[in-house]
Design a protein around this nucleic acid. Sequence first.
DNA 1: TATGAATGAGAGTTCATTCAT
DNA 2: TATGAATGAACTCTCATTCAT
Lengths: 191, 191, 191, 191
Amino acid sequence: MARLKSEEKRNAILAAAAQGVAERGVGAPTSLIAKLAGVAEGSIFTYFADKDLLLNALYLSAKSSLRETMYEGYPSRAPIEERFEHVWNRYLDWGMAEPALRIAMAQLTVSERITADTRAEGERVFGDIAGLFNEGMASGALRQGQPIGFMAGIITAVAETTMHFMAQNPAQAADYRRAGFEAIWRAIGSG
Amino acid sequence: MARLKSEEKRNAILAAAAQGVAERGVGAPTSLIAKLAGVAEGSIFTYFADKDLLLNALYLSAKSSLRETMYEGYPSRAPIEERFEHVWNRYLDWGMAEPALRIAMAQLTVSERITADTRAEGERVFGDIAGLFNEGMASGALRQGQPIGFMAGIITAVAETTMHFMAQNPAQAADYRRAGFEAIWRAIGSG
Amino acid sequence: MARLKSEEKRNAILAAAAQGVAERGVGAPTSLIAKLAGVAEGSIFTYFADKDLLLNALYLSAKSSLRETMYEGYPSRAPIEERFEHVWNRYLDWGMAEPALRIAMAQLTVSERITADTRAEGERVFGDIAGLFNEGMASGALRQGQPIGFMAGIITAVAETTMHFMAQNPAQAADYRRAGFEAIWRAIGSG
Amino acid sequence: MARLKSEEKRNAILAAAAQGVAERGVGAPTSLIAKLAGVAEGSIFTYFADKDLLLNALYLSAKSSLRETMYEGYPSRAPIEERFEHVWNRYLDWGMAEPALRIAMAQLTVSERITADTRAEGERVFGDIAGLFNEGMASGALRQGQPIGFMAGIITAVAETTMHFMAQNPAQAADYRRAGFEAIWRAIGSG
DNA sequence: TATGAATGAGAGTTCATTCAT
DNA sequence: TATGAATGAACTCTCATTCAT
């Protein structure tokens, strides 16, 4: 039997793509990505039929990675603000731990090369976040009358800004993290 | 005497670049931009020595356009919240009036091709915004202890999100506009 | 003891190559040929050291297949025109029965990738045809003074044209077959 | 004003393509064609949007070239056999004068890359040949009951064979030319 | 011997930039 | 100054061939 396609190599390519895209945008050459991944140029295409598919897979992979991190140690029984804060903190943890993924995702989010289907699939990954919002609404912890998607969009936007400042200013990272949370909690909380 | 370089043509190129970048990202071909501008491919380069300079000029031009719109009819003597709201509303007006510019700016903001100098210059354009923040802080209208840049970043992020939702959902545009303002005012106001 | 290279598999590859070349020309990928043959990509190269050898083997295989068909039921004792007509009819039978082989051979015949040696070997396969011509000349049945190779070339060319029309127009196939024979018989017969 | 696309350069590319295809088949690299034409690799694509269009244009250009040569000095009032012979001779003249075009056309004719539309257009170019056949039929000079397309196909096939032998054997070229004509005239004439 | 992933040279094509007109 | 054809480096992708399994 021949070598089988390895999940490992696929992941190496995705990681390399994240780095490449973070540094050079979606225009990062596949040859650079191959080099970063330590594979031959052609090997990219045995794992991803073309560059667009690689980019879309990267987008989804980043979203999944984020979601997974966000729910690590999730305190299911804690009061809702605490759970929001948990998710918030994990979000920023992820961004600090995976700078390439964070920056690449920012590039991909504004790129025309990510299809509507992929974006929809990316939102689906965060389906359980909707549950958190619904519960927050029902319990009166969150401000009423805002579409959940809009709230989520604002949180994402503020989180990105916060991560950007944390990354630029590591010494004050903890301050930004807290200030960011306070800002969004005031923005969306019913307090 | 030779014809002067026409400011008009330069502007046509910038507008075309905005459209091109909005639709195809920073990878939009200069040939496409030339076509959109109604000039010859080569003419781009009599106005901008290379594509990076064009992109950086576009970034600055978009920032200036935004700043200018924001201060139209600025109520210098009104209470500070009203002035913030004015600026907020004008920001969103600009985004709705200039969708290409708005989207292009989002692309450029995350692109490696915009230099640090250009970014700094872009912030300088909004220098008087800093005055508004300082005054807000001094008067106690804004929450204390946050770096002005961070506040401004959050506002920008929320504004972009709001514009995105307004554009997607024109019927509810007014609702998003107000909800967005309430969210940021709670986030940064001392209220 | 290891399995023997299976003649069957070799033939499957040749048949797949015929189909591939018929459909996509000599540029048909070896990976396509492998898929059509139902073998792994690498297996092609245990039967044929490289693609050129495969192509040359296919050429010869097609010629042999044709020759074999032509002589099936050959009426050794019949008058010469009848023997010519037999050969003619078998030729066309072969073309109709093996369209992939027929078309592939047309592609290979004009390809630079078939070596002079292979072409010579291909002619050798039809050596006994020369005997038929010689006898025809000697008996006065064929026009004098033409090089045998030229006559054979003309017959081949007319046969290919005839097969093309038969394939395009199956309803009139019998008419073309007869018309084709009459044409070449007038062309080369002494009548 | 800039340099204008020159018919001359377009023709140089077509001539280079003919040479390239004659020598290496339709797989001849565009880079080779560019080099043969003495232009940059990219220039090919300012004249032909892609390689397929170049190949199809070459096919048509070869057909036109042939047709034009065939009708040079056409003896409109001569008896029909003489006119057929004129056309025949010019056909072979063309093949001897333009070996690259002749061989390239043979390659293109069997290639999948020439579209049905292009083939139809190629036949249209020879429309007046149909007139010659019709007249031949009406006057009784040609054998009755054969589709014109079939006759034309046979002539083409025999001409190609004849040119092949003439090219291989220049010393006997005149003999082949005459023998070829006699063969086709017996094949299609009513004599 | 069979498999098919891995390889990298080379293919077709794009595109920022130059330059003859 | 304006034009757009010309250029060739660089890009994405293909494919014959190799080789670990």
